[in-house]
Design a protein around this nucleic acid. Sequence first.
DNA 1: CTGAAAGCGCTAACAC
DNA 2: GTGTTAGCGCTTTCAG
Lengths: 336, 336
Amino acid sequence: MTIKEIADKLGVSSTTVSNVIRGKDKQVSPAMKKKVQAALKEFNYTPNIGAVNLARKRSKIIGIIFFQMVNTENGLQDPFAAELIGSIEETIRQAGYYMMLYISDSITEIMYWLTGWNMEGLIVLGSSPVSRKELQERFHKPVVFIDSFLSSGEQNHYNVGLDDRGGAHDMTRYLLEQGHRKILFAADNLTNVDAVRYNAFRSAMKDFGLNTDKEDNFFLLEPQPDKLQKSMDTLCEKITSYTAVFCASDYYAVKLIGSFQDHGIRVPDDVSVAGFDDNYIAELCRPRLTTVHQDVSLKGSTAVRILTAVLEGRYNSGQEVLLPTKLIIRDSVRRI
Amino acid sequence: MTIKEIADKLGVSSTTVSNVIRGKDKQVSPAMKKKVQAALKEFNYTPNIGAVNLARKRSKIIGIIFFQMVNTENGLQDPFAAELIGSIEETIRQAGYYMMLYISDSITEIMYWLTGWNMEGLIVLGSSPVSRKELQERFHKPVVFIDSFLSSGEQNHYNVGLDDRGGAHDMTRYLLEQGHRKILFAADNLTNVDAVRYNAFRSAMKDFGLNTDKEDNFFLLEPQPDKLQKSMDTLCEKITSYTAVFCASDYYAVKLIGSFQDHGIRVPDDVSVAGFDDNYIAELCRPRLTTVHQDVSLKGSTAVRILTAVLEGRYNSGQEVLLPTKLIIRDSVRRI
DNA sequence: CTGAAAGCGCTAACAC
DNA sequence: GTGTTAGCGCTTTCAG
């Protein structure tokens, strides 16, 4: 059922129908309005969104893209990405936009998709720095990154991140307060967010006058599925000289607790373990994980809100938003 | 850069340009073809997909919808949904379609979205039976359900599910072989997939000449966040008369193992626990979970493959596809 | 082999 | 108030 068909049935022009549809009421008589509205209802009219977009030269589509991260399987597997997408979808829908998802690391493909659909804006998860620059050059609409870092002078780009610094600092302080001195930080890389977390850990240690030597306080986990177990085992052997390990994510923390258990090392009796993120596994495992909480849904909705505000010309805050963290004390760290 | 602009620059008609773009080579001279292709490259032409769709009266969009399930939070939180979406996206993209995601349980909203975007097909996750019938009446294009059930005579609808029956049967057999006789089945409902699993459990028990009384072998978990812990506690108190519990999902199994531990009940020494799904938590927790594996990514890609095959008129298998399960024996069930 | 013209469903000046 | 008309960017007859 098209506007024209409705108009014909009513013996009026399509402009009139279009006008009442779009609420340009002032230009149409009350009687006509009633009549048209009745017909609209009767024939169950639904606008062809594509046609509207073509005519209005916009799309109301917000693209969500995953730059696939290296060394990682299907990025959507982890609950973090899932919750994020869920909250993004909800916020987009409520704002009257539509969402298209694309997972790729080919800038060519991405650009084709972006311009082909005339996307109004973009939300990027897991940005890789390489393609990042090209994006900047070839896509001239607002883009909001999640957990990324803006370069200086980056126009029309926004970022919603986490106060990783504060979170890691708080956790380190807590470990120190519980009497721990020999603490190991474990992560699978030392870039982006993980670097921030590690540096905050380090600086908190330093403030306490403790050893800050990377050789001594950092352990690199190999993320590849076939190598991860081996690095966990290595860590288990090495652990005797430490009383606590602070993992860059809950996933690794829980995995590590399991490995410790397999090696007959008790948590937290023999060694304490702390995580980061407060995933749903943090409360599922035993001992329950002491970790740093972040509000993932808020991250997603914030990203969308910034984007829509920019699109509608009503954004006036900074390009960078850092969400707060919260220390969650459970059972995997003990006082010594 | 539009077709017309390119055509003007080259001094040819837009039809010619369009022809080479669409590979209608036979109708255009090799020389012309080269020339146009060069221009296309030079000006970095990208078709306006919306315009193409309008002209061709199709959309190449496949809609993915979540009927929000009752009693459940953001459905996307769980890793199952996440992995599913990931594999669906990948398969859709590779098949040359686009994906739009929508989470809603309002049939009105859904219909608006579906017809407004002229979706070519639909994949439904977590269907609720109510809206299901309306969908059937109002959307006359192929829809593939995941983990649902087709009513007889349902036209143009497909379902990809799991051999839940076989999986639950295998697990029950295994528990019996390990010497268990008093087995409790725990789930948060007795509909859909969970009903199939429970019935298969029951029938395997019956085949073994064992008690099949629901009062005695079924425990209802209250899924609401504030009530779940209480039902877990109740289960823990009740457990003395059983030697094993078979949970309808890994999530509950792991949660239950934690609760048992909290109550000083050892798994698998005091009681065995089995799960279903083989989530990534199944290998993360301790003891590692004995469970029934399903290939979630395959589920997603199968759904998309069926849909695209139907759309392209090359589907000739049944409306119902049941994916196989596999028994995964780990450490949460012991021989008694 | 190439091009003119109509049309996909809708919007937006601009007349009447 | 209501209708006419010209597009939005592309495809697709149908002539030449």
